[in-house]
Amino acid sequence: MNELFICGQNIGAITNNVKADLHKHWLLQIFVAVDEKLVIKVEGQKISCRAIVINANIMHEFQTGEVIHFTMLINPTSLLGRSIRKYYLRGNPYYILSEDRAIELQKLLLNHIKVDNSNDYSEVIKNVYHYFDNKILTEFDQRIESMLRMLNTYHSDKTASRVKYIAKAMYLSESRLSHLFKEETGIPLKSYLVHHNLLSVYEKIFDGESITDAALGSGFDSSAHFAYTNKKMTGMSARDIIKNSRFLKASF
């Protein structure tokens, strides 16, 4: 079972087909075992729990075996990502969800898979958002808020031209823009854009494009460049992720 979905700036899956080697990326990632507990290795420490969120830029590895799990990569600059970082992770490498709420998520997932089977993940995702919902958030510097909006609306094939365009629009040098972004978000601008491009590739593949066309149309030099970056960032090959998968849209 390998069902992939995109929800806003986040991408996730309900799957028993994950074998992710040791890796790290600048996104947050939540894992929920659909039944019983999962086992994950974070910075060399083996952890057993029902549900966990891994912080950005933290080394981890994970395998589902034959057991179905829910996982979602979360944009750390989104409201959900910022809430998780500020109120739950608080600079720690991971956060383990409370037992009672994790069991609630497990029941919802199990019901969806075994009973509902509607391919609509809205209720599952809504409950993940609800768990971490917190209204008290300080906005980024207004220039960064504007920049994030630009990144989601300005579509260039190349990262360099995208940065140049945004820096020019904001009357900043490219180096000052990069410094300000890292200062406000804690994330290197180039690393953030790589993940932005990766999400773009999967969105295009969801829409029926080939891996090569999607990679070239999202700022990668070639499909091989995309494959290398994807493996480095996710611990998995793109073809293994895509193979035998169903691609779904999710919203709520």
Results as ranks from 00 to 15, higher is better:
Thr212Gly: 09
Ile241Leu: 06
Val18Thr: 07
Arg101Gln: 09
Tyr171Asp: 09
Gly44Arg: 14
Ile68Glu: 00
Ile187Thr: 11
Leu110Lys: 14
Lys168Met: 08
Phe5Met: 09
Leu28Pro: 12
Met1Leu: 05
Lys114Thr: 08
Ser83Trp: 00
Leu28Trp: 01
Asp213Phe: 01
Thr71Pro: 03
Ala13Pro: 02
Tyr165Glu: 05
Thr159Phe: 04
Asn244Ala: 02
Asn117Glu: 10
Ser122Lys: 14
Lys41Pro: 00
Arg101Lys: 14
Ile125Tyr: 11
Ile84Met: 06
Gln45Arg: 15
Pro76His: 04
Asp221Gln: 15
Lys37Ile: 00
Asn55Asp: 06
Leu28His: 10
Phe181Leu: 03
Thr77Gln: 07
Ser237Ile: 12
Ile84Arg: 11
Asn119Pro: 01
Leu97Tyr: 08
Leu148Gly: 01
Lys249Val: 06
Gly8Phe: 05
Lys182Gly: 02
Lys168Asn: 10
Arg176Lys: 09
Gly8Arg: 11
Ile58Ser: 06
Val34Arg: 13
Glu99Asn: 15
Gly235Leu: 02
Gln106Gly: 09
Glu43Trp: 13
Lys86Asn: 04
Arg85Asn: 06
Lys182Pro: 00
Tyr165Thr: 14
Lys86Asp: 06
Asn230Pro: 02
Val163Lys: 13
His69Glu: 02
Ser191Asn: 13
Ala20Ile: 14
Leu28Arg: 14
Thr229Phe: 02
Leu199Lys: 14
Gln106Cys: 09
Ser173Thr: 15
Gln106Pro: 08
Tyr171Ala: 10
Asp35Met: 08
Met1Tyr: 02
Val32Arg: 08
Leu79Glu: 10
Phe226Val: 11
Glu123Arg: 15
Asn127Glu: 12
Thr15Cys: 02
Leu110Pro: 02
Ile211Leu: 12
Asn57Ala: 11
Leu177Glu: 06
Glu203Thr: 13
Ser98Gln: 13
Ile47Asn: 09
Leu28Thr: 15
Asp116Phe: 10
Asp21Leu: 12
Lys204Arg: 13
Met170Ala: 12
Leu105Cys: 07
Ala102Met: 13
Leu199Cys: 04
Ile96Met: 14
Ile113Met: 07
Ile58His: 03
His60Trp: 01
Lys86Phe: 00
Ala169Met: 12
His25Ile: 10
Ala238Lys: 11
Arg162Tyr: 02
Ala20His: 11
Gln29Cys: 03
Asp240Ala: 05
Gln63Asp: 03
Gly12Pro: 05
Arg101Pro: 02
Arg101Ala: 05
Lys158Glu: 11
Asn197Cys: 05
Thr185Pro: 05
Lys190Ser: 01
Asp207Pro: 08
Lys168Arg: 13
Tyr154Trp: 05
Met147Asn: 03
Asp157Ala: 11
Pro76Gly: 04
Leu38Thr: 06
Lys126Ser: 12
Ala227His: 07
Arg101Tyr: 12
Tyr95Pro: 10
Ala250Arg: 02
His225Asp: 15
Gly235Gln: 03
Ile74Val: 07
His25Leu: 01
Tyr165Ile: 12
Ser223Thr: 12
Ile74Trp: 00
